[in-house]
């Protein structure tokens, strides 16, 4: 199979999943017995508002027609009107997405910056003390609630030493970098343990591989071998781990953005839940699932480009 065929097949395989995601988000509101419009509106359920929502969502029609209506709207990127902001839910979600996207990119960069030196240290001193210490990190790190990491970082780096801002988003690129540092660090500490573990084992594999032996025998400096050959290949194989962690990172934004008061999708979802703003909750749920599907697709494609050994089965 050629690469083009592989990518096309991955795209086709994605469709049923995306379809299923629309079905789940559509059925969410129908899980509760009773009139969905009344459930959605809660305390705001005046007869007039209920009737308007019935018209908008076609709630008097049979379920499959409602689903069709929902599907056609979703395809056009329309998630209805936010009950809290009284404006298009899609617009609100999109502007919040940018904040979350920069947060996630920041977190990925930070986790690579944290994980690479640790993994190199462990892999070059295999079974030494530093290796043992690095291997203990996942054990501790996996069990830390991100809410707690966030509070500890605020306590130490924000309140005690006043190194970084602890809430809100400052304007400008530098302001963004500054105010997203602690939230990004919180998220990255969640995935760094996994990354360290996988990088360490792929580095050890790389050191034993023929191409590294060849490079060494050509008299290339050890440092250069490490950077040009070993780390590069180890990072390529750890890319999959990072791709799989995107769902975890997105889940993390819910807590982290809430604790640090950032205007991203995670905080938007949590706040919309507090406000019982159903259209926004539904829209965010769908957009986040779509983000996961697309990232997984993207990781597979990029991985197939980076690693010539990937077979297109």
């Amino acid at each position: 199979m050629t690469r083009g065929m592989y990518i096309r097949r991955r795209l086709l395989l994605m469709l049923p999943t995306a379809f299923g995601v629309t079905l789940v988000t559509f059925l969410m509101i129908h899980l509760i017995p009773g009139d969905p419009a009344v459930t959605m509106l809660g305390v705001r359920a005046t007869p007039k508002a209920v009737a308007a929502l019935h018209r908008e969502w076609g709630l008097n029609k049979p379920l499959y027609e409602q689903y069709w209506l929902f599907l056609t709207r979703v395809v056009r990127g329309n998630f209805g009107v936010s009950l809290f902001y009284n404006s298009s839910a899609t617009g609100i979600i999109l502007s919040a997405s940018l904040v979350s996207l920069s947060l996630i990119v920041y977190a990925v960069v930070l986790s690579v910056v944290i994980a690479v030196p640790l993994a190199v240290l462990a892999a070059t001193h295999r079974n030494g003390i530093s290796d043992q210490a690095v291997r203990a990190i996942p054990l501790i790190g996996m069990g830390m609630p991100s809410a707690w990491i966030a509070i500890m970082l605020i306590l130490l780096m924000g309140l005690k030493f006043h190194l970084f801002p602890v809430a809100g988003l400052q304007p400008g690129v530098l302001g963004h970098l500054d105010s997203l540092f602690l939230p990004g660090l919180t998220l990255s500490l969640g995935i760094a343990p996994l990354l360290v573990r996988s990088l360490r084992s792929s580095l050890i594999d790389a050191f034993d591989a023929d191409y590294v032996t060849t490079a060494r025998s050509k008299g290339i400096h050890e440092y250069r071998v490490l950077i040009r050959h070993a780390i590069r290949n180890a990072l390529a194989s750890s890319l999959n781990i990072l791709g799989l962690q995107i769902a975890f990172l997105i889940s993390g934004t819910l807590v982290v953005e809430t604790v640090f008061a950032l205007p991203g999708v995670g905080a938007l979802m949590v706040n919309s839940i507090y406000r019982r703003d159903f259209p926004v909750v539904q829209g965010v749920t769908f957009v986040l699932a779509l983000a996961v599907i697309l990232t997984n697709l993207g990781t597979d494609v990029v991985h197939s480009l980076l690693d010539p050994r990937v077979r297109f089965e």
Partner: peptide
Amino acid sequence: VDVILAFPFFVLVIAL
């Protein structure tokens, strides 16, 4: 399984 795995775990839990 594919569909449920497509949702970020915590997002689906909190929505439910």
